[in-house]
Amino acid sequence: MKAAFVGKGGSGKTTLAALFCRFLAVQDAPRVLAFDADINQHLAVALGADPDEAALLPALGDHLEEVKEYLRGDNPRIPSAAAMLKTTPPGPGSRIVGVAEANPLYEKLVRAIGGVRLAVTGPFAADDLGVACYHSKVGAVELLLNHMADGPGEYAVVDMTAGADSFASGLFTRFDCTFLVCEPTVRSVGVYRQYVGYARDHGVRIVVVGNKVDDAEDVDFLRGEVGDDLLCWFGRSGFVKAAERGRHLPIGELEPANAHALAELKAALDTSTKNWIRYAEQAAEFHTRNAHAWGNDRAGADLTAQIAPGFTLAPATAAAR
Rank of each mutant, 00 (worst) to 15 (best):
M1Q: 07
M1Y: 11
K2R: 15
A3K: 08
A4I: 10
G7L: 01
G12Y: 01
K13H: 12
T14E: 03
L16W: 04
A18C: 03
L19H: 00
F23P: 01
V26N: 14
V26H: 09
Q27M: 06
A29F: 07
F35M: 12
I39Y: 00
N40C: 03
L43T: 00
G48E: 00
G48D: 05
A49Q: 05
P51Y: 06
L56M: 13
D62L: 11
L71Y: 00
D74W: 11
N75F: 07
R77H: 13
I78P: 15
I78L: 09
P79V: 04
A82Q: 15
M84A: 00
K86E: 06
P90W: 14
P92G: 07
P92N: 06
S94E: 06
V99W: 11
A102S: 14
N103M: 01
L105F: 02
L105H: 02
Y106H: 08
Y106I: 01
Y106W: 14
L109T: 00
V110H: 10
R111N: 03
A112L: 10
G114W: 01
G115F: 08
V116K: 04
T121M: 14
C133F: 11
L144F: 10
G151H: 09
G153S: 05
E154K: 10
Y155S: 07
A156L: 13
D165P: 04
D165G: 03
G170A: 04
L171W: 08
T173H: 08
R174S: 12
F175V: 14
L180G: 09
V181I: 15
T185L: 09
S188E: 06
G190N: 10
V196M: 05
G197I: 01
G197A: 02
Y198T: 13
A199Q: 10
D201K: 08
G203T: 11
V204I: 05
V209Q: 02
G210Q: 08
K212D: 04
D214R: 15
E217A: 14
D218V: 09
D220W: 07
F221M: 06
G224I: 02
L230M: 03
L231E: 08
W233G: 08
A242M: 13
R245W: 02
R247C: 12
L249V: 07
L269T: 11
L269K: 14
L269F: 05
T271G: 12
A280W: 00
N290Y: 15
A291N: 07
N296L: 06
N296T: 12
D297W: 12
R298W: 14
A301R: 05
D302T: 06
L303P: 15
A305M: 10
I307T: 07
A316D: 09
A316H: 03
T317M: 10
A320H: 08
